[in-house]
């Protein structure tokens, strides 16, 4: 998700409204779709979904069917490929690893991120902007640049090679800048009056943080959390270097399966399809957050 990092960078110093508040005005002008528009839309949908659907359907065919007629439909429909993947141990192991690593990454990112963003947003102190700039500059460094020393650090110095934490910690570290940069304006936008009222009631700043700020900044935390989760779930390079055998994540598993069973096209399709289901379900559930987070970041 390094791309979204840069997006926020450009608007980092400006404060913006929480992206949860969106205008829902109707687009009316030159309304109505005519047949040409529908035809083009249909073509776009076909090109977009075609490869995905082909993979899903390919999993229901046999290799012989695919070899005979690459563009045909399953006939008869075969469940063996999917059953084979689902009854094998490796798929579930990879799915477990992906889930644990993504949950760890997301948790660390959001907890550390919101903690750091709080003083940056609501405390007045010397060096505040400098501290903030540290994170802003961090947006410019993609994990790729540091990948080789990171590999040495984790496998040799920390002895965390081939562990869940060994992947989650650096992923969280690289997700922190974007998290802090998105969260700070969020926390800053919460009205000052609330804080004063809480103070009059004898609430400390930490009490204010726990009882008022955290609940109110829920949407912002969900946005950065979703970004961190999706980034971790889809990550390839860092897990590729750090994880072996039983500890692999789904993207690694998919890549392995594809090269080890290169001739078993139907099996590869079945494995790949099953591997994309969790991400798609998560996306459909969180769609508005993901799109809102990305567009909010770009529009500034």
């Amino acid at each position: 998700m390094s791309t979204s990092n840069a997006a926020v960078l450009m608007h980092a110093p400006t404060t913006r409204e929480p992206s949860g508040r969106r205008r829902n005005r109707k687009r009316g002008s030159f309304g109505g779709g005519n047949p040409v528009v529908y035809a083009i839309a249909l073509a776009v949908v076909a090109l977009t979904l075609g490869p995905v659907l082909y993979g899903v359907l390919g999993g229901f065919r046999t290799n012989a069917q695919i070899a005979q007629d690459p563009s045909g439909l399953p006939s008869p429909w075969v469940l063996d490929n999917y059953v084979g993947v689902l009854t094998g141990a490796s798929f579930w192991q990879y799915a477990l690893n992906s889930t644990v690593i993504a949950v760890l990454t997301t948790t660390i990112t959001v907890v550390f991120g919101v903690m750091a963003a709080y003083p940056l947003a609501r405390y007045q102190f010397k060096g505040r902007e400098t501290l903030f700039m540290v994170f802003v500059v961090g947006l410019l460094f993609p994990a790729t640049v540091a990948i080789v020393p990171l590999f040495i650090l984790i496998t040799q110095n920390l002895q965390l090679g081939n562990t869940w934490m060994g992947v989650a910690l650096p992923q969280a570290a690289f997700a922190l800048p974007v998290t802090v940069v998105i969260l700070r304006p969020f926390l800053a936008a919460i009205p000052k009056e609330l804080e004063e009222a809480a103070q009059l009631d004898g609430t400390s700043r930490i009490g204010f943080f726990w009882r008022i700020l955290l609940p109110l900044s829920g949407p912002g935390m969900v946005t950065v959390g979703v970004l961190a989760f999706v980034g971790s779930w889809n990550a390839y390079l860092l897990p590729l270097l750090l994880l072996q055998s039983d500890m692999k994540t789904l993207p690694l598993g998919v890549a392995d399966f594809s090269s080890e069973h290169a001739s078993d096209t139907a099996g590869v399709f079945a494995f790949t399809t099953l591997a994309m289901i969790p991400a798609l379900v998560f996306f459909l559930a969180m769609q508005r957050r993901i799109v809102g987070g990305l567009t909010g970041a770009v529009k500034g």
Binding site: G28, V37, V45, V52, N234, P251, V254
Partner: peptide, 26 residues
């Protein structure tokens, strides 16, 4: 523009972006 199935259309167009590069690549 206002058209039938606009929300669905937007969801579908975004699907490839959500897939891991590895999965799309395979």
């Amino acid at each position: 523009r206002k058209m039938w199935g606009q929300g669905l259309l937007r969801t579908i167009i975004f699907v490839p972006y959500v897939l891991a590069e590895v999965i799309a690549g395979v």
